[in-house]
Design a protein around this nucleic acid. Structure first.
Length: 500
DNA sequence: TTTAGGCATTTAAAACTGGGCTT
DNA sequence: AAGCCCAGTTTTAAATGCCT
């Protein structure tokens, strides 16, 4: 971050990094995410020097467009930045560059001052990790009519409910966590107090939001403000488990997740008792089959017996699970395709593999017919075999996470990054390197080249078939019993289709 | 100036295995 | 019989990016 006296220097790149929906933090992506209506002609960075020489008008237009886009993007996040700044008491030009931990910490410090609490010194603690959320093994295959039930801010609610805090932790506390830590019920701890304040604040803002005309300036400001409050509230649990925190408390973090695991497992048990089938569960959500007429009872039980709130998040008409946790694809009642965790949503797979998987899954989810999905997968293999895929769909992007000298393992993106650096490019942690695998022998890293240096005739098409498109489609198809080899078969029927 | 843990996956590197050969 | 080389196979480690 660069500080300039008398100026607020707010960097939109920090903003972009903060938005998890953006896998590539470019201005184009930010503008698209914010839904801004600006024109942006894309000029690749490596082409700029050349264009400056040959087509200066283009570069001028390009620069003006970007300047306008930046201004508009700022205007749409301005309220949020100032809200977050006000809430955390951090300078507005600082709050976006600050990590989540420091935002929480600054909020807590301002609250401590208000309450007359002392602010602890930052300690030097070696972090020991502890058990987190519970993830249930999914039931493999295609399921119809599955309801997803979510707990509403589970960890904050638990912290408030059991008065979990570093200053209520006590040998003789009456709230006993499943892992043995005890917390006094009275007086109210600092963290529950902070969370209650934040939740009440958010409630107030949301009430005010209803009273102002939607889309108005006031509505925008209020909405930005409630988002800022929510962000801080949601980060408090994680903050307590961060070794660098002033209010680090492993006991608090551990007790919170322990109670969380207890809550979700008892919910799973109760759902089964009520005659529902639990397809999957992750931390604070459960996926339920045979839920018609029973879901309401479960929600009621959660409110009465657990003293927590849960709500029906969505209903999948169909959902497919592989054997893997945290990976599935579904189609909701309003025909939305949703893909979670699979290659299709991962930035480190080529666009062609992502697209092939997405469409294969989409056909499967819309029709429920594995053979049609298989046909779709074969189409993509065919496209690659006949070398008809654009180069940009073959680029594999990976992030540089540390300085290049610190890597011990040889990897394609590191080899490429080192080469680019030798060619004069500046590469630092956080940058993404795009490469394409070319034909030849030896390990992958020796065949990876910067995407803009590759021509169609050097592409290793077999790699993209065997290591990109086929594995991605296979993941989806195998969930419904289609063997992977079938993707590579021609598609004509053989005797094996009848007897195999 | 790193909110937490849980998880799958790919690739490279290391460790292992067993056959065939020499000493 | 012991030791060694080599190629193929299996296991482990490193790294990344996702989910809640």
């Amino acid at each position: 971050h660069v500080s300039i006296r008398g100026r607020l220097n707010i960097d939109l790149e920090d903003m972009a990094r903060d938005i998890p929906e953006l896998t590539v933090e470019t201005l184009e992506e930010l503008v698209r995410f914010l839904g801004l209506k600006v024109e942006l002609d894309t000029v690749e960075e490596y082409e700029l020097a050349e264009k400056w020489r040959d087509d200066r008008e283009l570069v001028k237009r390009y620069s003006m467009q970007r300047a306008e886009a930046i201004l508009k993007a700022f205007e749409s996040i301005r309220d949020f930045v100032f809200s977050l700044s006000e809430l955390t008491r951090m300078p507005a030009d600082y709050v976006l560059t600050a990590s989540a931990g420091f935002r929480v910490e600054n909020y807590l410090m301002s609250l401590a001052v208000k309450l007359g609490e002392l602010i602890p010194r930052r300690g030097e603690i070696t972090h020991v990790s502890y058990p987190g959320g519970l993830v249930k093994e999914p039931i493999r295959g295609m399921h119809e009519d599955v309801a997803v039930l979510d707990f509403k801010s589970m960890y904050p609610s638990l912290i408030i409910k059991y008065n979990i805090s570093f200053d209520t932790l006590s040998e003789d506390g009456e709230n006993v966590a499943p892992n043995g830590y005890r917390f006094r019920a009275e007086p109210e701890g600092f963290l529950p107090r902070a969370l209650k304040t934040l939740l009440e604040e958010r409630g107030k803002i949301q009430a005010m939001l209803k009273a102002v005309p939607p889309g108005s300036v006031e509505a925008k400001i209020l909405d930005a403000r409630q988002r800022a409050v929510k962000i801080i509230a949601n980060a408090i649990y994680g903050y307590t488990g961060w070794a660098g925190a002033r209010w680090y408390s492993r006991e608090v973090a551990e007790a919170t997740t322990a109670w969380g695991r207890e809550v979700i497992s008892s919910t799973i048990r109760k759902a089964e008792e009520l005659g529902m089938k639990v397809i999957y569960s992750d931390t604070d959500s459960v996926f339920l089959k045979d839920h018609r007429g029973k879901l309401e009872k479960l929600v009621e039980w959660i409110e009465k017996d657990l003293g927590l709130e849960a709500k029906l998040e969505k209903v999948f008409k169909r959902v497919i699970f592989t054997e893997a946790k945290k990976r599935y694809a579904g189609i909701t009642e309003d025909e939305e395709i949703e893909i979670v965790g699979l290659e299709a949503v991962r930035g480190d797979w080529s666009a062609i593999a992502r697209q092939a998987q997405r469409e294969t899954a989409e056909v499967l989810l819309r029709t429920g017919d594995p053979s049609l999905a298989l046909r779709k997968a074969r189409e993509y293999v065919q496209q690659l075999r006949s070398e008809e895929v654009e180069l940009r769909k073959l680029i594999i992007w990976r992030q540089i996470t540390r300085s290049l000298s610190e890597y011990s393992a040889t990897q394609p993106h590191i080899v490429v990054a080192r080469r680019l650096m030798n060619e004069g490019w500046k590469i630092q942690p956080g940058d993404k390197v795009g490469y394409i695998i070319t034909r030849g022998s030896g390990p992958l890293y020796s065949r990876a080249k910067p995407y803009f240096e590759v021509s169609m005739d050097e592409v290793d098409w077999d790699y993209y078939v065997e290591k990109q498109v086929v594995p991605a489609c296979k993941r989806v198809l195998e969930a419904v019993g289609v063997k992977a080899e079938k993707i590579l078969e021609s598609g004509e029927r053989t005797l094996m289709d009848f007897f195999g």
